[in-house]
Nucleic acid binder design. Structure first.
Lengths: 234, 234
DNA sequence: ACATAGATATGATAATTGTCAGCTTTTCAA
DNA sequence: TTGAAAAGCTGACAATTATCATATCTATGT
């Protein structure tokens, strides 16, 4: 077993610590590892589509994927950004429904595809694993509730401010102080649920006020305190 | 065992068919039944509050409860309406977090309080039950995703129209054609995520256009087709 | 029945947000 | 390197939605 092959064994995979797979037994993990497939996905490529029947889940090893849903007016609403260690598609596999979301790579990615059999079998036989999955889903549900409240009770400006704080806290910033995860203005608008132009306008405003700094499409947070105040309604 | 006592046994409870309790064994159910407490709650009374630590879950036997979250601007956002057969508080119990939502009775209710021990123990030992809970939570999560998209991509008018269709489909209407579940205009506004005045205005408009009919605070759907068209953007 | 608090209704106005059009800058592949 | 094409930006304007003020109705307890 060479180095690369070794690293691609689930048993050795560090990523696993962040998700429910850590509750699997050695034997179960071995099965998963044997049945999984590593896939490289380029920026902009689709991983799965809304309405598609998923026969497995995707575990993110590297990169970021946007999970979105097309609305009647033709705009995508980004519901979640999935990053290293997160599992995509588990909701659909568990509920045995077609996917309610599309997944598209925001940058180059590496994901493991795990056929549902490996998962479903363990769900039925290893309660620790099932409870662990349940915990993760409970967490996702709480986050979704929070998003609902933000969407309906906060202004667009507050939501934009919050989005940048979220990006900083979850993806970090480089040495120059720019956000590690660079999204297009359109993607930001789709996270926030607003028109691209409105989003751009607000970013400009924040830049003029010294809350943000920009360089091309890169954006950095210049005054976190002020952004935070804005989110909280001051 | 008299009739009332018999009906209050979980083993006999029909409600159970609608939730994850149906996956419990006879013995497990007996334990739950012995530890549960039936509680009557009057309209407007609170069942639990946001931030409260829940030591059990609430199974709705009768009536409807609104699950809401207070936003920074002082308004409640109603995230879900829980009705007969639904279990409230399970997310918090499973995630071992304080509740992220408040539950208030919309009309007179009867709920069973089930201490978390009965649940948690079964979660660890009966995978069928755990998977069933997981399925329900997966379903809730999907619904939450849909709400996010609606909130951020639909106009207030569309959301109001959708809310009435939802109320009709989930709670039905009486012989006169009024919705069985009567919510105050303020509650409707809090479901839709808008100002109470805006909500009232839109209801008036819909009445004038013949989409709805009203009688005091009761509201009925007069033209489902037109409401549906509106939701879909015509 | 009646008073009254709370809910519903409506107008006027302000603030927010979306849409369309046109322009400039950046990005990326030939 | 360069020239489309895409992304970013800005102005003007329209549409939507919130806010405040005030009036009317209605449910509820006494």
């Amino acid at each position: 077993m060479d180095k690369e092959e070794q690293e691609s064994r689930c048993e050795q995979c560090i990523i696993r610590q962040f998700n429910a797979l850590r509750a699997m037994s050695k034997e179960e993990l071995k099965k998963v590892s044997d049945s999984k497939m590593v896939r490289k996905i380029k920026k902009g490529e689709s991983i799965f589509e809304e309405g598609e029947k998923l026969n497995g889940v995707f575990c993110v090893r590297n990169g970021v994927s946007k999970l979105s849903k097309l609305s009647a007016n033709g705009k995508d609403q980004i519901v979640k950004l999935a990053t290293k260690g997160e599992v995509m598609g588990q909701r659909s596999v568990i509920a045995e429904e077609h996917s309610n979301l599309s997944a598209v790579a925001v940058n180059d990615m590496e994901v493991c595809y795990i056929p549902k059999e490996s998962i479903v079998h363990t769900l039925k036989s290893n309660p620790d694993f099932t409870v662990e999955v349940l915990r993760h889903m409970a967490h996702d549900l709480r986050e979704a509730d929070d998003v609902i409240v933000n969407m309906s009770q906060k202004t667009v400006k507050q939501r934009v401010a919050e989005a940048f704080l979220y990006l900083k806290n979850n993806f970090g910033e480089d040495k120059e102080g720019f956000l590690m995860l660079t999204l297009s203005r359109e993607d930001i608008a789709n996270v926030v649920g607003t028109a691209t132009e409105s989003c751009i306008r607000i970013i400009s405003e924040f830049r003029k006020k010294g809350f943000l700094k920009t360089s091309g499409k890169r954006i950095g947070i210049a005054d976190e305190r002020k952004l935070q105040d804005l989110v909280e309604g001051f």
